[in-house]
Design a protein around this nucleic acid. Sequence first.
DNA 1: TCAACCCTATCTATTGATAGGCAGACACAG
DNA 2: CTGTGTCTGCCTATCAATAGATAGGGTTGA
Lengths: 185, 185
Amino acid sequence: MLSTTTQTLLDAAEERLRLGGFHAVSFRDLATDLGIKSASVHYHFPKKADLGVAVVERYAERFFDDLDARVDAGEAKILAFIAAYRAALTEKNLPCLCGIMGSEVNGLPEPVQIAVTVFLQRNVDWLESAFSEAGIDEPRSQALHAAAALQGAMLMAANLGGARAFDAVAAEVVSAVRAKIRRAN
Amino acid sequence: MLSTTTQTLLDAAEERLRLGGFHAVSFRDLATDLGIKSASVHYHFPKKADLGVAVVERYAERFFDDLDARVDAGEAKILAFIAAYRAALTEKNLPCLCGIMGSEVNGLPEPVQIAVTVFLQRNVDWLESAFSEAGIDEPRSQALHAAAALQGAMLMAANLGGARAFDAVAAEVVSAVRAKIRRAN
DNA sequence: TCAACCCTATCTATTGATAGGCAGACACAG
DNA sequence: CTGTGTCTGCCTATCAATAGATAGGGTTGA
């Protein structure tokens, strides 16, 4: 079980990460956020890479838990996936953690890099399996497309029109999937 | 006219930027790349923000010049756009500068932030106008979708399957556009 | 002469990281 | 109940490395 401080630390780190990326997060800023000293942050996360990995893994877990819950609740898988992404964006009005970190992947400590790649890969795999179940042809391409479009949608949301931009893209993704389904029948 | 050193500096800065983002670029690294001292880099770009803006603006100019050339050569606009993105990616096997910087936009100096937003906005506008000319309905949404998908494709290319991943996404974008065209007729 | 270009030297801020200490909570032996 | 040891969580103090930035001086070529 994670201590309260550890969790609060992860919260603060995630927010700063999603705002400015990995290099924009400093132990001192986090310490200030919590009203403690930077040395105390090192107590919870010895190296910055440890912190990075922990944030990514918690984010991934939360995302897929939310996704599963939506599917269990009966949503169509692709719609559930889109909704989960939108929720991640809207929750704190911040872009996807792994979209951010995926962009700077070449500048990350290796363990963090791996955690990010794993998350993105898992997204694509999940979608591929969903499309495969739905009988759509070339599920891999379609999965890459959907994941890419939604990540890009977050980029657009952060830089241009906000959540509205995300929704416009999401609508097109749904439309593309429907077209694929029609063609498959 | 830009001096040789200035241009080489922009080259080095662009490469480092596209690898690790704005914060991963330092005056000292750039100086080392060119075999000069960091103080000399400040001679060409007094502040780091100046450098950032210059890199983005040169990148934008190059991109749209390339795009225009492709259109003049008779390529269909949407295909030309995709090809231009792919060329940007393949050229040095590096993701789009503005995809990277768009991700960390909240951590950038304001002038750089603006330059990035302008580039992304210009992309969407260009696509919207292209789709509009083609008689596609909801050209704005479609433009956002295409831009988002291609930016996302670069993210996937950088983190997962390389250029192949980009191509898979690009193919789906084309397919989505064709579906829209069919529906419009 | 003077402007372009690069240099040395230096400043201040910030960063990740470490060593070592201190207070409270808690368990356990006497 | 009491003393003892231990663990947790935070602290102070301090490094070395790296950052962006500036002042001022040398050199070269038009």
